[in-house]
Amino acid sequence: MSRPTQVDPRGLRFAAGITAVVLALVLVTPRPVSLALLTFQTAVFAIAAFVSLQRSPYAITFATLVRPRLGAPAELEDARPPRFAQVVGLAFAATALIGFALGTPAVGYTAAAFAFVAALLNAAVGLCLGCEMYLAWRRLQPVRA
């Protein structure tokens, strides 16, 4: 069995920081700007979730501009929980877009706010709610012999 892909946890927190800023702007900017930002963030979530964490725009920015100044990480992290977290973020961002598109801004703002809080927690204190959901889900799976 092949070893799971490993990622730099500093890059994940960097991406969460950018995500938190983008989602904060979604919550406070006028509608055309906020929808453009939300659409962009939804695409970022989709790339990270379904293509690769390393191919998302935020990860590329980290790898190009930040990591060379920091050096190699002390340890790497399994990419599966953060990728699942990106799926969760994608679900909230898509729900927000759908809410706005259907004329229910309360749904849009609520979903965007939940995604913002999750990203902010990850960026500020390293608590990845989507990762914790993934680990809880894995604990509920039957053990394979």
Rank of each mutant, 00 (worst) to 15 (best):
F100P: 02
C131M: 10
T42Q: 01
M133K: 03
A49S: 09
G99F: 03
P57L: 06
L35K: 00
I47T: 10
F114I: 15
E77N: 10
S56T: 07
D78A: 05
A24V: 06
G99T: 04
L102M: 15
M133A: 14
P68G: 14
S34I: 00
A118H: 05
A115V: 09
L65M: 14
T95C: 15
V125S: 09
Q41A: 13
A74G: 14
V33S: 06
L70E: 12
R69E: 09
I47W: 04
R67M: 10
P73E: 12
P105N: 05
Q86T: 08
A115I: 01
M133L: 14
L121A: 12
L27G: 11
P82I: 06
T64Q: 12
A15P: 02
G108M: 01
P105F: 01
G108H: 00
R31S: 15
R13G: 02
P57G: 03
L53Q: 12
R55L: 13
S56K: 01
L23R: 04
R139I: 11
V51C: 10
Q86Y: 08
A20G: 05
L121T: 11
A15Y: 05
L120W: 09
A79P: 06
E77V: 15
V66G: 11
C131G: 03
P30W: 07
L129A: 13
L140F: 09
F40E: 07
L102T: 15
P57K: 01
V33L: 15
R55P: 02
M133V: 14
A115L: 06
A46W: 00
P82S: 09
C128D: 06
V117Y: 03
P81L: 06
Q86V: 10
V21N: 03
R69K: 15
P32E: 05
A49F: 03
L27E: 09
A24M: 10
Y58V: 06
A115W: 00
A85R: 00
V66H: 07
T42C: 10
V51K: 08
T95W: 04
G89F: 02
F116K: 04
A63M: 11
V125C: 13
T104E: 14
V44I: 12
T29Y: 10
A49M: 06
I18P: 04
P30L: 06
G126P: 04
T95P: 07
A48L: 09
T104K: 13
V26M: 03
T110I: 15
N122A: 15
L120K: 07
P81W: 00
A101T: 12
A46E: 03
Y109H: 13
L76Q: 12
G108L: 05
R80P: 09
L76A: 15
A113Q: 07
F100Y: 14
R55W: 11
G17H: 01
I18H: 01
G126H: 01
A85M: 05
S56D: 09
L27F: 00
P73W: 01
W137Q: 13
R83T: 08
L35P: 08
A91S: 13
A36M: 08
L53I: 14
P81D: 00
A59T: 11
Y134W: 13
E75N: 13
C128Y: 09
